[in-house]
Computed example of a mutant assay.
Amino acid sequence: MTMKLSDIANQIDCRLVGDDCNIENVADINQAGNGYLAFVYNARYLPGLKTTKASAVILKEEWLKQCNSSALVSDNPRLAFAKAAHLLNSVIIADKGVSNTAVIASGANIPASVAIDHNAVIKSGTNLGENVQIGACSVIESNVEIGDNTLIYPNVTIGHDIKIGKNCIIYSGAVIGTDGFGYVADGDVYIKVPQLGSVIIGDNVEIGANTTIDRGALLDTIIHDDVKLDNLVQIAHNVEIGKHTAVSACTGIAGSSKIGKNCIIGGGVGIRDNIEITDNVIITGRTFVSSSLKEPGTYSSSVLVDTNQNWKKNVMRFKRLDEMFKRITRLEKTSGK
C-alpha cells in the first residue's frame, strides 16, 4: 500500500520536515531504499542517517540536523514507526465474500462486508460483526459473537457461546472455549466435571498461534481489553486477565487465578491456581508463582544459568541449606552473638 508521507504524518501525529513523497512501506534504516520509511529511536543508530537511502526517517527533534532526507519528527519514534507500519500493511486473510467451499449454517448472521475463506465452518446462531475475516478451515461453533474488524487466521477453533470483541487478532492453531481440566476422584476413577461457563474476550485482544483458552466451569474465563497473549500460552478455566496485560510464550496460568491490569509476564512462567496478581506486576521468564502477589513490582524465581559442574554442586548445597542454617545458629549462640 502506497501513501503520501504527509498523510502518514497526519495519521500518526508527527511533524513533516522536508519534501513530501510517496511511501511504499517501512524498512530498517540500513536496508531501506527509495520509497521506504525508516526510523531511529536510539542514539546508537544515528550513524545510519548519513548512509541510509530511505526516502524518509522518523526521529526525534534533537537528531533532525543529522538527517539528509525528509523526516517525521516524533517524541517517540518507535511508537510512530509501529503506527506507520500498521497503516502501510493492512492484513487480508481472505477475499471479501464467502467462499463457495465454506459451510455456513442457515441460522448464522453474516454481514455482506465479511470475508470467509475456503472450508471454514460457521454454525447456527453465530453473529459476525462488520469486516470480520475468517481464514481457511477455521471452525466457529454455535452462538458465537465476534465483533467488528476481528481477524481470525486459518485453522482456529472457537467453541460454542464464546464472545469475542472488536479489532481482535487470533492466530492459527488457537483453540478458544475447550473444556477446562476439571475432574473429581471417585475411588480410583476420575469423574469429569461439566464445564458450563464461557470465554469472554474484550476488544483489541491478540491471541497467538497454538494458544488455548479454556471455558469456565460455572463462571466465565475473561480476557479483558487490549490483552496480548503470545504463542503457546495456556489459560485455564475461570482465569481472569486484566486490561493491557501481556503474556509471553509457553506460560501456563492455572484455574481460577486472577491477573491484574498492566502486567507483563515473561516466557515459560507457571502461575498456580486460585491466586491473585495485582496490577502493574512484572514477572520474569521461568518464574513459578506459587502464591498471590499483592504489591506492584518485579518478581523472579528462576535459577540463573551456570556450568553444569557448578550447578550440580549448588544443587547439592541447596539440599543442605537447612542443616547449614541450624549449624550457623548454634555457632552464633555458643560464640555469644
Rank of each mutant, 00 (worst) to 15 (best):
S198Q: 03
I176Q: 07
T126L: 03
L196A: 12
A120Y: 04
D148F: 04
S138Q: 01
A136D: 05
I162S: 07
Q133H: 07
D188V: 11
N127S: 13
N167M: 13
Y153K: 05
N204E: 05
P194C: 07
S198Y: 02
S142G: 10
L128S: 03
K163R: 15
T126W: 06
Y171M: 11
G197V: 00
P154F: 02
E130L: 14
G182R: 09
Y183V: 14
I191Y: 06
N155E: 09
N210Q: 15
S172V: 02
I122W: 00
D179P: 04
V156C: 05
V132I: 05
N119R: 06
I207G: 11
L128D: 00
A136M: 03
N149A: 13
S124W: 00
G177C: 04
N210H: 15
V144Y: 07
A120R: 06
K163W: 13
Y171D: 08
K123D: 12
S142D: 10
V184G: 11
Q133K: 04
D179V: 02
I134H: 02
A136R: 06
S198N: 06
N149F: 10
N204P: 01
A185P: 15
P194G: 11
T126F: 03
G180V: 00
F181T: 01
P194Q: 10
A185T: 12
A209T: 12
I213T: 01
D188E: 14
H160G: 05
I176E: 00
Q133A: 02
V156G: 06
K163N: 15
N167W: 08
A174V: 02
L128G: 02
G129P: 14
K163A: 15
T211M: 11
I169K: 15
G173A: 10
I162G: 03
D148P: 09
I162N: 05
I134S: 05
G177Q: 02
G129R: 12
I162T: 08
V156I: 04
G147K: 01
C137W: 10
Q195S: 04
G147C: 02
D188R: 12
G125W: 07
I169F: 10
V144A: 10
L196M: 13
I176H: 06
I146C: 07
S142N: 13
G182K: 09
A174Q: 04
N119L: 08
D161I: 04
I207M: 14
V199D: 01
L196T: 11
Q195A: 06
G159S: 11
V199R: 01
N119E: 09
N149H: 14
A185M: 15
N155T: 08
V205C: 13
G125Q: 11
T211A: 12
V132W: 06
V205W: 09
I140A: 01
S142C: 11
N149K: 13
G208V: 01
L128P: 03
